[in-house]
Design a protein around this nucleic acid. Structure first.
Lengths: 196, 196
DNA sequence: TTACAAACCAAGCGCTTGCTTGGTAGCTTA
DNA sequence: TAAGCTACCAAGCAAGCGCTTGGTTTGTAA
Protein backbone atom coordinates (compact mmCIF):
# COMPACT_ATOMS: atom_id res chain seq x y z
CA UNK A 1 0.00 0.00 0.00
CA UNK A 2 1.48 3.26 -1.09
CA UNK A 3 -0.16 5.05 1.78
CA UNK A 4 1.82 3.31 4.51
CA UNK A 5 5.04 3.95 2.64
CA UNK A 6 4.48 7.66 2.47
CA UNK A 7 3.57 8.12 6.12
CA UNK A 8 5.15 11.32 7.44
CA UNK A 9 6.89 11.86 4.13
CA UNK A 10 9.18 9.08 5.27
CA UNK A 11 10.71 8.16 1.97
CA UNK A 12 14.24 6.93 1.49
CA UNK A 13 15.71 10.40 1.30
CA UNK A 14 18.08 11.42 4.10
CA UNK A 15 15.40 13.79 5.34
CA UNK A 16 12.81 11.03 5.40
CA UNK A 17 15.08 8.68 7.30
CA UNK A 18 15.87 11.39 9.83
CA UNK A 19 12.17 12.03 10.36
CA UNK A 20 11.25 8.43 11.04
CA UNK A 21 14.24 7.94 13.33
CA UNK A 22 13.35 11.12 15.19
CA UNK A 23 9.71 10.09 15.57
CA UNK A 24 10.79 6.80 17.10
CA UNK A 25 13.30 8.38 19.45
CA UNK A 26 10.93 11.17 20.49
CA UNK A 27 8.32 8.57 21.32
CA UNK A 28 10.73 6.42 23.33
CA UNK A 29 12.55 9.15 25.23
CA UNK A 30 10.52 12.30 24.80
CA UNK A 31 11.55 15.31 22.74
CA UNK A 32 13.65 17.03 25.39
CA UNK A 33 15.59 13.90 26.31
CA UNK A 34 16.39 13.05 22.71
CA UNK A 35 19.60 14.74 21.58
CA UNK A 36 20.49 15.60 18.01
CA UNK A 37 23.40 13.21 18.56
CA UNK A 38 20.90 10.41 19.23
CA UNK A 39 19.04 11.12 16.02
CA UNK A 40 22.24 11.41 14.00
CA UNK A 41 23.58 8.13 15.38
CA UNK A 42 20.30 6.39 14.51
CA UNK A 43 20.84 7.10 10.81
CA UNK A 44 24.62 6.79 10.94
CA UNK A 45 25.76 10.37 10.45
CA UNK A 46 27.46 13.00 12.59
CA UNK A 47 25.36 15.30 14.74
CA UNK A 48 26.36 18.44 12.88
CA UNK A 49 25.21 16.97 9.58
CA UNK A 50 21.62 17.09 10.75
CA UNK A 51 21.60 20.84 10.28
CA UNK A 52 22.14 20.41 6.59
CA UNK A 53 18.56 19.06 6.49
CA UNK A 54 16.82 20.94 9.31
CA UNK A 55 17.43 24.44 10.63
CA UNK A 56 16.95 23.36 14.23
CA UNK A 57 15.96 20.45 16.42
CA UNK A 58 12.53 22.01 16.86
CA UNK A 59 12.04 21.99 13.07
CA UNK A 60 12.36 18.22 13.16
CA UNK A 61 9.58 17.96 15.73
CA UNK A 62 7.51 20.40 13.70
CA UNK A 63 8.02 18.38 10.52
CA UNK A 64 6.95 15.16 12.26
CA UNK A 65 3.91 16.96 13.62
CA UNK A 66 2.82 18.46 10.32
CA UNK A 67 3.38 15.31 8.30
CA UNK A 68 1.30 13.16 10.61
CA UNK A 69 -1.51 15.69 10.84
CA UNK A 70 -1.71 16.03 7.07
CA UNK A 71 -1.55 12.29 6.52
CA UNK A 72 -4.26 11.52 9.04
CA UNK A 73 -6.50 14.35 7.93
CA UNK A 74 -6.60 12.79 4.49
CA UNK A 75 -7.62 9.47 6.03
CA UNK A 76 -10.44 11.18 7.89
CA UNK A 77 -11.66 12.78 4.69
CA UNK A 78 -11.78 9.37 3.06
CA UNK A 79 -13.62 7.84 6.02
CA UNK A 80 -16.40 10.42 5.77
CA UNK A 81 -16.57 10.17 1.99
CA UNK A 82 -16.88 6.40 1.98
CA UNK A 83 -20.53 6.31 3.05
CA UNK A 84 -23.67 8.43 3.31
CA UNK A 85 -24.99 6.84 6.48
CA UNK A 86 -24.11 9.28 9.19
CA UNK A 87 -23.73 6.63 11.87
CA UNK A 88 -21.39 4.69 9.64
CA UNK A 89 -19.44 7.85 9.06
CA UNK A 90 -18.93 8.17 12.81
CA UNK A 91 -17.92 4.52 13.02
CA UNK A 92 -15.37 5.20 10.31
CA UNK A 93 -13.98 8.25 12.09
CA UNK A 94 -13.58 6.31 15.31
CA UNK A 95 -11.99 3.36 13.56
CA UNK A 96 -9.51 5.50 11.71
CA UNK A 97 -8.61 7.58 14.74
CA UNK A 98 -7.93 4.40 16.69
CA UNK A 99 -5.86 3.16 13.78
CA UNK A 100 -3.75 6.32 13.78
CA UNK A 101 -3.11 6.01 17.50
CA UNK A 102 -2.22 2.34 17.87
CA UNK A 103 -1.37 1.58 14.23
CA UNK A 104 1.05 2.86 11.65
CA UNK A 105 1.35 6.45 12.83
CA UNK A 106 1.58 5.42 16.48
CA UNK A 107 5.00 6.87 17.18
CA UNK A 108 4.20 10.29 15.80
CA UNK A 109 0.76 10.47 17.41
CA UNK A 110 2.15 9.84 20.87
CA UNK A 111 4.76 12.52 20.28
CA UNK A 112 2.09 14.87 18.95
CA UNK A 113 0.14 14.64 22.20
CA UNK A 114 2.91 14.40 24.75
CA UNK A 115 5.43 16.86 23.30
CA UNK A 116 2.96 19.35 21.85
CA UNK A 117 4.16 22.06 24.19
CA UNK A 118 7.75 21.72 23.05
CA UNK A 119 6.68 23.58 19.91
CA UNK A 120 6.85 27.36 19.88
CA UNK A 121 3.52 29.17 19.95
CA UNK A 122 3.80 30.08 16.28
CA UNK A 123 4.39 26.50 15.29
CA UNK A 124 1.53 25.35 17.49
CA UNK A 125 -0.70 27.83 15.69
CA UNK A 126 0.42 26.62 12.28
CA UNK A 127 -0.21 23.01 13.25
CA UNK A 128 -3.61 23.83 14.72
CA UNK A 129 -4.61 25.55 11.50
CA UNK A 130 -4.00 22.34 9.57
CA UNK A 131 -5.61 20.29 12.31
CA UNK A 132 -8.80 22.36 11.96
CA UNK A 133 -9.82 20.40 8.87
CA UNK A 134 -9.38 17.17 10.80
CA UNK A 135 -11.67 18.36 13.57
CA UNK A 136 -14.05 19.73 10.99
CA UNK A 137 -14.94 16.24 9.80
CA UNK A 138 -15.76 15.24 13.36
CA UNK A 139 -17.97 18.23 13.98
CA UNK A 140 -19.76 17.75 10.68
CA UNK A 141 -20.72 14.18 11.59
CA UNK A 142 -21.40 14.73 15.27
CA UNK A 143 -23.33 17.90 14.50
CA UNK A 144 -25.53 15.90 12.17
CA UNK A 145 -26.22 13.29 14.80
CA UNK A 146 -26.98 15.97 17.35
CA UNK A 147 -29.48 17.55 14.95
CA UNK A 148 -31.23 14.19 14.84
CA UNK A 149 -31.35 14.15 18.64
CA UNK A 150 -29.22 11.04 18.77
CA UNK A 151 -26.36 12.37 20.86
CA UNK A 152 -27.82 13.38 24.22
CA UNK A 153 -24.90 15.76 24.72
CA UNK A 154 -23.43 18.75 23.00
CA UNK A 155 -21.53 17.63 19.88
CA UNK A 156 -18.35 19.32 21.05
CA UNK A 157 -18.49 17.60 24.42
CA UNK A 158 -19.06 14.27 22.73
CA UNK A 159 -16.07 14.89 20.50
CA UNK A 160 -13.90 15.57 23.55
CA UNK A 161 -15.07 12.41 25.27
CA UNK A 162 -14.39 10.29 22.20
CA UNK A 163 -11.02 11.97 21.76
CA UNK A 164 -10.19 11.05 25.33
CA UNK A 165 -11.12 7.42 24.85
CA UNK A 166 -9.19 7.06 21.61
CA UNK A 167 -6.02 8.85 22.60
CA UNK A 168 -5.81 7.01 25.91
CA UNK A 169 -5.72 3.68 24.07
CA UNK A 170 -2.05 4.27 23.38
CA UNK A 171 -1.50 3.53 27.06
CA UNK A 172 -3.18 0.16 27.18
CA UNK A 173 -4.46 -1.32 23.94
CA UNK A 174 -2.91 -4.62 22.93
CA UNK A 175 -3.54 -5.63 19.33
CA UNK A 176 -2.90 -9.27 20.16
CA UNK A 177 -5.57 -9.24 22.87
CA UNK A 178 -9.15 -10.47 22.72
CA UNK A 179 -10.64 -7.18 21.66
CA UNK A 180 -9.57 -6.00 18.22
CA UNK A 181 -9.56 -2.43 16.98
CA UNK A 182 -12.84 -2.60 15.10
CA UNK A 183 -14.45 -4.21 18.12
CA UNK A 184 -13.24 -1.37 20.29
CA UNK A 185 -14.51 1.14 17.74
CA UNK A 186 -17.93 -0.49 17.95
CA UNK A 187 -17.93 -0.26 21.73
CA UNK A 188 -17.10 3.43 21.59
CA UNK A 189 -19.69 4.07 18.89
CA UNK A 190 -22.36 2.28 20.88
CA UNK A 191 -21.62 4.43 23.91
CA UNK A 192 -21.65 7.63 21.88
CA UNK A 193 -24.82 7.59 19.83
CA UNK A 194 -28.39 6.51 20.55
CA UNK A 195 -29.86 4.04 18.05
CA UNK A 196 -32.57 5.25 15.71
CA UNK B 1 -11.14 21.98 55.04
CA UNK B 2 -8.01 20.36 56.31
CA UNK B 3 -7.85 18.09 53.28
CA UNK B 4 -7.21 20.84 50.74
CA UNK B 5 -4.57 22.33 52.97
CA UNK B 6 -2.61 19.10 53.14
CA UNK B 7 -2.70 18.35 49.44
CA UNK B 8 0.66 16.92 48.37
CA UNK B 9 2.00 17.46 51.87
CA UNK B 10 2.17 21.10 50.90
CA UNK B 11 2.47 22.63 54.30
CA UNK B 12 4.37 25.80 55.16
CA UNK B 13 7.66 24.00 55.62
CA UNK B 14 10.42 24.78 53.11
CA UNK B 15 9.96 21.32 51.69
CA UNK B 16 6.24 21.85 51.24
CA UNK B 17 6.72 25.18 49.52
CA UNK B 18 9.27 23.65 47.19
CA UNK B 19 6.86 20.87 46.29
CA UNK B 20 3.99 23.15 45.38
CA UNK B 21 6.24 25.49 43.42
CA UNK B 22 7.72 22.52 41.59
CA UNK B 23 4.29 21.08 40.78
CA UNK B 24 3.24 24.38 39.27
CA UNK B 25 6.42 24.81 37.25
CA UNK B 26 6.43 21.20 36.07
CA UNK B 27 2.88 21.65 34.85
CA UNK B 28 3.61 24.91 33.06
CA UNK B 29 6.93 23.97 31.45
CA UNK B 30 7.26 20.23 31.76
CA UNK B 31 9.71 18.43 34.02
CA UNK B 32 12.69 18.50 31.68
CA UNK B 33 12.35 22.19 30.87
CA UNK B 34 12.07 23.20 34.50
CA UNK B 35 15.49 23.82 36.03
CA UNK B 36 16.36 23.57 39.69
CA UNK B 37 17.18 27.26 39.37
CA UNK B 38 13.56 27.92 38.34
CA UNK B 39 12.25 26.08 41.37
CA UNK B 40 14.68 27.76 43.72
CA UNK B 41 13.83 31.21 42.39
CA UNK B 42 10.11 30.51 42.84
CA UNK B 43 10.60 30.13 46.60
CA UNK B 44 13.35 32.72 46.88
CA UNK B 45 16.42 30.63 47.60
CA UNK B 46 19.59 29.69 45.74
CA UNK B 47 19.59 26.67 43.46
CA UNK B 48 22.14 24.75 45.50
CA UNK B 49 19.99 25.05 48.60
CA UNK B 50 17.38 22.78 47.08
CA UNK B 51 19.64 19.81 47.66
CA UNK B 52 19.42 20.34 51.37
CA UNK B 53 15.79 19.18 51.04
CA UNK B 54 15.89 16.74 48.13
CA UNK B 55 18.67 14.43 47.01
CA UNK B 56 18.03 15.13 43.35
CA UNK B 57 15.67 16.87 40.95
CA UNK B 58 14.03 13.55 40.22
CA UNK B 59 13.24 13.10 43.92
CA UNK B 60 11.14 16.27 43.72
CA UNK B 61 9.10 14.84 40.87
CA UNK B 62 8.80 11.57 42.75
CA UNK B 63 7.60 13.33 45.89
CA UNK B 64 4.94 15.26 43.94
CA UNK B 65 3.85 12.00 42.31
CA UNK B 66 3.59 10.02 45.52
CA UNK B 67 1.83 12.75 47.47
CA UNK B 68 -0.86 13.23 44.87
CA UNK B 69 -1.43 9.51 44.43
CA UNK B 70 -1.78 8.97 48.15
CA UNK B 71 -4.07 11.95 48.57
CA UNK B 72 -6.37 10.97 45.74
CA UNK B 73 -6.45 7.30 46.70
CA UNK B 74 -7.88 8.31 50.05
CA UNK B 75 -10.58 10.32 48.27
CA UNK B 76 -11.48 7.29 46.18
CA UNK B 77 -11.77 5.16 49.28
CA UNK B 78 -14.19 7.68 50.76
CA UNK B 79 -16.23 7.82 47.55
CA UNK B 80 -16.80 4.08 47.60
CA UNK B 81 -17.48 4.00 51.32
CA UNK B 82 -20.11 6.75 51.16
CA UNK B 83 -22.87 4.57 49.66
CA UNK B 84 -23.92 0.96 49.17
CA UNK B 85 -25.59 1.48 45.80
CA UNK B 86 -23.07 0.26 43.27
CA UNK B 87 -24.16 2.66 40.56
CA UNK B 88 -23.82 5.56 42.97
CA UNK B 89 -20.38 4.29 43.89
CA UNK B 90 -19.37 4.53 40.24
CA UNK B 91 -20.85 8.00 39.99
CA UNK B 92 -18.77 8.96 43.00
CA UNK B 93 -15.59 7.53 41.50
CA UNK B 94 -16.12 9.42 38.25
CA UNK B 95 -16.93 12.64 40.07
CA UNK B 96 -13.90 12.45 42.28
CA UNK B 97 -11.56 11.51 39.45
CA UNK B 98 -12.80 14.50 37.45
CA UNK B 99 -12.30 16.63 40.54
CA UNK B 100 -8.70 15.49 40.91
CA UNK B 101 -7.97 16.30 37.26
CA UNK B 102 -9.54 19.73 36.86
CA UNK B 103 -9.77 20.72 40.52
CA UNK B 104 -7.39 21.14 43.42
CA UNK B 105 -4.77 18.58 42.41
CA UNK B 106 -4.84 19.66 38.78
CA UNK B 107 -1.21 20.71 38.54
CA UNK B 108 0.15 17.50 39.94
CA UNK B 109 -2.22 15.26 37.97
CA UNK B 110 -1.16 16.76 34.66
CA UNK B 111 2.47 16.27 35.63
CA UNK B 112 1.73 12.73 36.75
CA UNK B 113 0.43 11.82 33.30
CA UNK B 114 2.69 13.85 31.05
CA UNK B 115 6.00 13.43 32.87
CA UNK B 116 5.50 9.89 34.12
CA UNK B 117 8.38 8.61 32.01
CA UNK B 118 10.81 11.06 33.54
CA UNK B 119 10.80 8.82 36.61
CA UNK B 120 13.28 5.95 36.76
CA UNK B 121 11.84 2.47 36.39
CA UNK B 122 12.24 1.79 40.09
CA UNK B 123 10.36 4.92 41.04
CA UNK B 124 7.65 4.11 38.50
CA UNK B 125 7.29 0.73 40.13
CA UNK B 126 7.04 2.23 43.60
CA UNK B 127 4.40 4.69 42.44
CA UNK B 128 2.44 1.99 40.63
CA UNK B 129 2.39 -0.10 43.79
CA UNK B 130 0.66 2.71 45.65
CA UNK B 131 -1.58 3.42 42.68
CA UNK B 132 -2.78 -0.20 42.75
CA UNK B 133 -5.13 0.56 45.63
CA UNK B 134 -6.61 3.43 43.63
CA UNK B 135 -7.32 1.17 40.68
CA UNK B 136 -8.59 -1.50 43.04
CA UNK B 137 -11.59 0.64 43.98
CA UNK B 138 -12.47 1.04 40.31
CA UNK B 139 -12.22 -2.66 39.56
CA UNK B 140 -14.26 -3.52 42.61
CA UNK B 141 -17.13 -1.32 41.49
CA UNK B 142 -16.90 -2.03 37.76
CA UNK B 143 -16.49 -5.75 38.44
CA UNK B 144 -19.70 -5.66 40.44
CA UNK B 145 -21.59 -3.97 37.63
CA UNK B 146 -20.19 -6.42 35.13
CA UNK B 147 -21.41 -9.31 37.29
CA UNK B 148 -24.87 -7.78 37.06
CA UNK B 149 -24.55 -7.70 33.28
CA UNK B 150 -24.83 -3.93 33.25
CA UNK B 151 -21.56 -3.10 31.54
CA UNK B 152 -21.68 -4.65 28.08
CA UNK B 153 -17.88 -4.67 28.02
CA UNK B 154 -15.08 -6.13 30.02
CA UNK B 155 -14.66 -4.19 33.28
CA UNK B 156 -11.01 -3.48 32.54
CA UNK B 157 -11.81 -2.08 29.10
CA UNK B 158 -14.55 0.08 30.60
CA UNK B 159 -12.09 1.39 33.18
CA UNK B 160 -9.65 2.34 30.41
CA UNK B 161 -12.35 4.13 28.45
CA UNK B 162 -13.49 6.09 31.50
CA UNK B 163 -9.89 6.87 32.38
CA UNK B 164 -9.42 8.25 28.89
CA UNK B 165 -12.47 10.48 29.11
CA UNK B 166 -11.57 11.82 32.55
CA UNK B 167 -7.88 12.47 32.00
CA UNK B 168 -8.51 14.16 28.66
CA UNK B 169 -10.72 16.74 30.36
CA UNK B 170 -7.59 18.55 31.48
CA UNK B 171 -7.23 19.61 27.85
CA UNK B 172 -10.63 21.19 27.42
CA UNK B 173 -12.91 21.42 30.44
CA UNK B 174 -13.89 24.92 31.48
CA UNK B 175 -15.38 25.18 34.93
CA UNK B 176 -17.08 28.43 34.04
CA UNK B 177 -18.82 26.84 31.05
CA UNK B 178 -22.37 25.58 30.75
CA UNK B 179 -21.59 22.03 31.77
CA UNK B 180 -20.41 21.62 35.35
CA UNK B 181 -18.29 18.80 36.71
CA UNK B 182 -21.16 16.82 38.22
CA UNK B 183 -23.08 17.16 34.97
CA UNK B 184 -20.11 15.81 33.05
CA UNK B 185 -19.81 12.97 35.54
CA UNK B 186 -23.45 12.09 34.90
CA UNK B 187 -22.87 12.05 31.14
CA UNK B 188 -19.94 9.70 31.51
CA UNK B 189 -21.85 7.48 33.94
CA UNK B 190 -24.81 7.28 31.59
CA UNK B 191 -22.55 6.19 28.73
CA UNK B 192 -20.80 3.60 30.88
CA UNK B 193 -23.48 1.56 32.58
CA UNK B 194 -26.82 0.20 31.42
CA UNK B 195 -29.79 1.08 33.66
CA UNK B 196 -31.39 -1.67 35.73
C1' DT C 1 37.02 16.30 -17.83
C1' DT C 2 35.11 19.76 -15.62
C1' DA C 3 31.55 22.04 -12.87
C1' DC C 4 28.49 22.08 -9.31
C1' DA C 5 25.41 20.93 -5.74
C1' DA C 6 23.88 17.79 -2.22
C1' DA C 7 25.48 15.22 1.64
C1' DC C 8 28.51 14.69 4.97
C1' DC C 9 32.76 14.96 8.53
C1' DA C 10 35.90 16.65 12.26
C1' DA C 11 36.38 19.79 15.57
C1' DG C 12 34.84 22.61 18.80
C1' DC C 13 32.38 26.96 20.73
C1' DG C 14 29.43 29.03 24.04
C1' DC C 15 26.10 28.08 27.12
C1' DT C 16 23.17 25.60 30.46
C1' DT C 17 22.46 21.85 33.32
C1' DG C 18 22.24 19.12 37.87
C1' DC C 19 24.80 18.99 41.60
C1' DT C 20 28.95 19.76 45.08
C1' DT C 21 31.64 22.18 48.32
C1' DG C 22 32.88 24.82 52.30
C1' DG C 23 31.22 27.95 55.09
C1' DT C 24 27.59 31.00 57.75
C1' DA C 25 23.21 32.88 60.11
C1' DG C 26 19.69 32.03 63.32
C1' DC C 27 16.93 29.38 66.33
C1' DT C 28 16.47 25.92 70.01
C1' DT C 29 17.91 23.28 73.97
C1' DA C 30 20.72 22.27 77.99
C1' DT D 1 26.62 30.61 76.92
C1' DA D 2 27.87 26.97 74.55
C1' DA D 3 26.52 23.29 71.56
C1' DG D 4 23.98 21.63 67.80
C1' DC D 5 20.75 21.60 64.25
C1' DT D 6 18.12 23.42 60.35
C1' DA D 7 18.23 26.32 56.60
C1' DC D 8 20.66 28.69 53.69
C1' DC D 9 24.49 31.28 50.50
C1' DA D 10 28.40 32.00 47.20
C1' DA D 11 31.07 29.98 44.00
C1' DG D 12 31.95 26.90 40.74
C1' DC D 13 32.81 22.16 38.50
C1' DA D 14 32.15 18.54 35.04
C1' DA D 15 29.22 17.07 31.66
C1' DG D 16 26.16 17.57 28.06
C1' DC D 17 23.58 20.48 25.06
C1' DG D 18 22.22 22.74 20.31
C1' DC D 19 24.47 24.49 16.80
C1' DT D 20 28.48 26.56 13.78
C1' DT D 21 32.41 26.39 10.92
C1' DG D 22 35.51 25.18 7.21
C1' DG D 23 36.53 21.76 4.47
C1' DT D 24 35.86 17.05 1.96
C1' DT D 25 33.43 13.34 -0.51
C1' DT D 26 30.00 11.68 -3.78
C1' DG D 27 26.78 11.60 -7.46
C1' DT D 28 25.07 13.92 -11.72
C1' DA D 29 25.10 16.26 -15.82
C1' DA D 30 27.16 19.19 -19.41
Amino acid sequence: MIATLSVYGMDDTPRGKLLSAAARLFREQGYDRTTVRDIAAAVGIQSGSIFHHFASKEEILFAVTMEVIRFNTERMRQAVASTDDIQEQLRGLIRVELQTIVGDTREAMIVLVRDWRCLSEEKQKAALAVRAEYEGYWMQVLGGLQAQGRLGVDAMVMRRLINGMTSWTSNWFDESGQLDLDGLADVILQRSVDPL
